[in-house]
């Protein structure tokens, strides 16, 4: 199931979207998520879904991959929508039982929640699929840079984030190996009740933590031996470059915003 989940995963590529500056992508994805809440009537939804469809096309990845990738999350979205449906009062009441009710307002809001949630998750998936974790970290750092004024340790945070991202695959591999080793010793990770499953996690978590602490210790030693004395007075190897395509992307999303506002009132 988790293997299918696409949110948070990066697929290397050279599409137009892959090549956008991560700062542009981060800001635009956030912007899109905000304006997703401006949707009101069916025209606005058609516009937003058409737009995200176009964006998916630009990723160069197959449409069915997105559908399958978002699949595992659909239940989360449906669940949220159902909660909205059952707890929203107002308008015509079709059915009620205790505090639960289905109303015309409820149907409207839950549909809106469902569609907006879908838009947001698709956009977040597009962002992570086309942007390397390191590029996201660089982008976040660049966007946080103004916070240095209030003495927020931006450089340290960025290095910490980049090192953490770098170790994610290493620790995932290690977790897989430990799981295999414990399964070979008779542990069943996907079987039994909640208590049994929780207990099965202990032989995974302890070695994983012990290993991670050992790695952190080694890494700290290596960093020290390579002259790391804290994040001050360092120069940077990696810099971000803003291209025309990034400006075009910004213009496109601003146009989208304007059209959306116009359609709202139709």
């Amino acid at each position: 199931m988790l293997e299918q989940l696409t949110l948070g995963r990066y697929i290397p590529g050279h599409s137009w979207l892959h090549r956008l500056d991560p700062r542009a992508k981060l800001v635009l994805a956030c912007y899109f998520i905000v304006i997703a809440f401006l949707t009101t009537n069916w025209l606005t939804y058609v516009l937003m879904f058409a737009f995200i469809g176009g964006v998916i096309f630009l990723t160069g990845l197959s449409f069915s991959y997105f559908v399958r990738g978002i699949g595992p999350l659909i239940w989360l979205i449906v669940f949220t929508a159902i909660l909205q449906l059952l707890f929203t009062p107002g308008g015509h009441i079709y059915w009620h039982w205790g505090i639960l009710m289905i109303t015309s307002t409820g149907i409207q809001t839950s549909t809106a929640v469902f569609l907006r949630f879908l838009l947001i998750i698709t956009m977040a998936t597009v962002l992570t699929l086309t942007t390397a974790p390191l590029a996201i970290a660089d982008g976040v750092e660049a966007l946080l840079r103004p916070l240095r004024v209030i003495h927020f340790p931006v450089a340290q945070t960025a290095l910490m984030l980049s090192v953490a991202l770098r170790f994610v695959p290493t620790l995932l591999d290690e977790a897989q190996t430990i799981m295999n080793a414990q399964r070979a010793r008779g542990v069943e990770f996907n079987n039994g009740g909640l208590i049994k499953r929780l207990r099965a996690i202990v032989p995974l978590l302890i070695p994983l933590f012990v290993g991670a602490i050992g790695r952190a210790d080694d890494l700290a030693t290596a960093m020290e031996s390579r002259g790391y004395q804290g994040a001050t007075n360092r120069t940077r190897y990696r810099v971000l470059k803003w291209h025309n395509a990034d400006t075009i992307a910004v213009v496109v999303i601003l146009v989208l915003n304007v059209v959306l506002v116009v359609l709202r009132h139709m």
Partner: peptide
């Protein structure tokens, strides 16, 4: 079928 993985000491807990 007993499996001794590479660096098996990493599975002790």
């Amino acid at each position: 079928v007993g499996m001794v993985f590479q660096f098996p000491e990493n599975q002790l807990f």
